[in-house]
């Protein structure tokens, strides 16, 4: 029953995409808009197929920058969130820094990073970390803070040490909240990678997008844009699957709702 409902849900989502593409196609044909302004989806798809090896190679580079920055954000963000939850001082010091960093426009920082670090991988990864870090920390802090006094007392009466309490209680309790942050962070991470490529790069989908639009090659621009969208969906789906695997106790919610409460 579950697989059929999943298939049906996916079908509805896929159908909405098809409808969007159809609307786009009809619009282009009926208005006769010039190709360099808005190419038809059929032509974009044809171009994507023709340029598939280029697109795949550039997508691979952008994906690598995104994933590297994302992984780094998680590796830094979760411990920082824990520290900010456990220590009031760390919170008072860290919070304004993190919020301040978040409000700085990343597009304005990116050129500086190029000046400092050159055109290699590192400035892109750093831009990714700068955008992905914030939602990870904020959501992890919210998760860790929702460990209430009852749970702490349970841990104390069971004699759990700090580390055991963290891994057995705080962390699993916070996972749903942490994953909410990871989903937002992943979509932002891709934007960060593209911003990094815009500012200084010879590679990646962001660079392809910029260089093709500079040459008014709209077909290639749109191909890069669609490839970016697909990449974003895949990265988001990867986080969603990881959540499904890591948070199994939230999966059966619908079923238990259907079953209703058992009499106590």
């Amino acid at each position: 029953m579950q697989w059929r409902s999943i298939a049906r849900d996916l079908g509805i989502s896929a159908a909405s995409l098809v409808v969007l593409l159809l609307a786009w196609s009809i619009f282009v044909q009926s208005t006769g808009v010039k190709e360099f302004l808005l190419p038809s989806p059929e032509k974009v798809l044809a171009t994507m197929w023709a340029e598939r090896s280029t697109l795949l190679a550039e997508a691979g580079i952008t994906a690598w920058e995104t994933l590297l920055g994302f992984a780094l954000s998680v590796a830094i963000g979760i411990p920082v969130a824990l520290l900010m939850t456990e220590s009031r001082l760390a919170y008072l010091v860290g919070n304004p820094l993190i919020v301040g960093l978040q409000t700085v426009p990343k597009i304005a920082v990116a050129p500086l990073l190029v000046v400092w670090l050159g055109f290699g991988l590192s400035p892109k990864v750093i831009v990714v970390v700068l955008v992905a870090f914030f939602p990870i920390v904020v959501n992890a802090v919210a998760g860790f803070r929702s460990v209430d006094a009852d749970m702490r007392n349970l841990g104390r009466i069971l004699g759990l040490g700090r580390m055991t309490f963290f891994f057995r209680i705080s962390l699993p309790h916070s996972l749903p909240s942490i994953f909410a942050g990871l989903k937002v962070a992943m979509t932002l991470a891709l934007i960060g990678a593209v911003v990094g490529e815009f500012v200084g790069s010879e590679r990646g989908l962001g660079h392809l997008l910029l260089s093709s639009s500079a040459r008014l090659n709209s077909l290639l621009s749109f191909s890069a844009l669609v490839a970016l969208t697909i990449l974003g969906l895949l990265l988001y789906a990867a986080v969603a699957v990881a959540e499904w695997l890591a948070v199994p106790w939230r999966r059966r919610v619908d079923e238990s709702d259907v079953m209703g409460g058992h009499s106590g």
Binding site: M151, I157, L158, G159, R168, H173, W249
Partner: peptide
């Protein structure tokens, strides 16, 4: 904290990611 005692709170305070059995075994492990 008197860790040798058994304690029941006003709320069940069960860990939502553990089964009923898993919640009982948490205390056994501890």
């Amino acid at each position: 904290p008197v860790t040798s005692a058994g304690m029941v709170f006003q709320k069940p305070v069960l860990l939502e990611w553990r089964s009923a059995l898993g919640n009982v075994l948490l205390s056994a492990d501890a």
